[in-house]
């Protein structure tokens, strides 16, 4: 089973960030089902960072995740692809959004297919995806799809019939994500507790 994790940093209810997150999740499941010749089920589940806000602060202060945050971190580590969606705050991704990526273990997103998306009041913020978010995922060595999806408030009305609409961008980006997932196959992260590096190798690597 292919697992898609959608991370939404929207705050309000309803939030346009969550609406976009769900659209991207559903479109990815559709894209995977349409090309996947093998009969495998695909699902997506959403991590709402608002629900984890206190636990994220605790994690930043104590160094370890607890409760539902520990569960969310594990789900991201085991996911075949991640869709990350943030509102634009003060010219960048939100602080809450960044905190989640700050507490992931090093290497969690390495090589993992990632789709980036953001929402804002106006289209003037759209380059946040390229100038703030893409460098973040480059640092995390994620495998980010070329198309990033930006939705301004105006995109949620009427745009879907014209070329270059939000719906078209969603389809292109999720198609790219599905391609990466299918090429990479289902993988689980290496577990250094199950397969430790033998000590002789650790010693020999010094010389």
């Amino acid at each position: 089973m292919t697992s898609i994790v959608v991370i939404s940093a929207g705050i309000s209810v309803p939030s346009s960030t969550r609406i976009l997150a769900d659209s991207l999740g559903q479109a990815t499941v559709r894209a995977l089902s349409s090309v996947d010749v093998v009969e495998t089920s695909t699902s997506y589940d959403v991590i709402e960072l608002r629900d984890l806000a206190h636990l994220l602060t605790d994690n930043v202060l104590t160094g370890f995740p607890t409760g539902s945050l520990a569960d969310a971190v594990r789900r991201v580590a085991e996911a075949d692809a991640v869709i990350a969606v943030t509102p634009v705050y003060t010219g960048s991704y939100s602080g809450l959004f960044k905190m989640f990526f700050d507490v992931l273990e090093e290497g969690t997103l390495q090589g993992k297919p990632v789709l980036m998306a953001a929402t804002a009041g106006t289209a003037r913020h759209s380059l946040v995806l390229e100038f703030a978010m893409r460098p973040l995922f480059a640092h995390l060595r994620a495998d980010v799809v070329p198309t990033a999806v930006f939705a301004a408030s105006e995109d949620f009305g009427g745009g879907s019939v014209r070329g270059g609409s939000l719906a078209a961008r969603i389809d292109r980006a999720t198609g790219e994500l599905a391609d990466k997932v299918l090429r990479r196959g289902t993988t689980l992260p290496d577990d250094p507790f199950e397969n430790p590096t033998p000590f002789e190798d650790l010693l020999n690597d010094l010389h």
Binding site: D58, T62, T66
Partner: peptide
Amino acid sequence: PVYGHGPSLEDFMRE
């Protein structure tokens, strides 16, 4: 210094 201003005493005792 290590965990102050973060989790509650009760949370930290549980975890």
